[in-house]
């Protein structure tokens, strides 16, 4: 274990939990589709930090880094596809307002 890890663990988890709340709130309470995607991005940022932190405090940095690299590659592909879908919605409705989508919360 790294020497600094115990002191760093709680502030980091706290920060990550806050980032999760912020991102989830953004996804749930926005009417703008692009902003919903930004909320998802923030969620992914939080989880990236969590994996790196897990690697740091257990001294498995190499494993954590290789996981994060895979995660980032996948994240880019998912977000690109999502942006493609959002642009498709915009082409049909002419706006990015989620209220045009029927019962988004299902």
């Amino acid at each position: 274990m790294n020497e600094l890890a115990p002191q760093l663990f709680w502030p980091c988890t706290l920060g990550i939990a806050m980032i999760f709340v912020i991102g989830l709130y953004c996804v749930l309470f926005t009417y703008n589709l692009i902003r919903a995607l930004i909320g998802l991005e923030i969620l992914i940022k939080g989880v990236t930090l969590l994996i790196i932190l897990a690697g740091y405090i257990t001294a498995h940095e190499a494993l954590a880094q290789s996981l994060v690299i895979t995660l980032i590659v996948i994240e880019v592909v998912v977000i690109t596809v999502a942006v493609g879908v959002v642009l498709g919605i915009r082409k049909h409705t002419g706006s990015l307002d989620a209220r045009n989508i029927r019962n988004l919360k299902g």
């Binding site: 999760f20 998802l40 992914i44 969590l50 257990t58 996981l67």
Partner: peptide
């Protein structure tokens, strides 16, 4: 179709984030 895809993407990414957080905790 885009509407269905968008809902699927949002819920799927949220599920993915939950799953990855669990993986990180298992890593610890």
């Amino acid at each position: 179709a885009f509407e269905g895809a968008f809902k699927y993407i949002v819920l799927s990414v949220v599920a993915t984030v939950l799953m990855l957080s669990a993986i990180a905790l298992f890593l610890i």
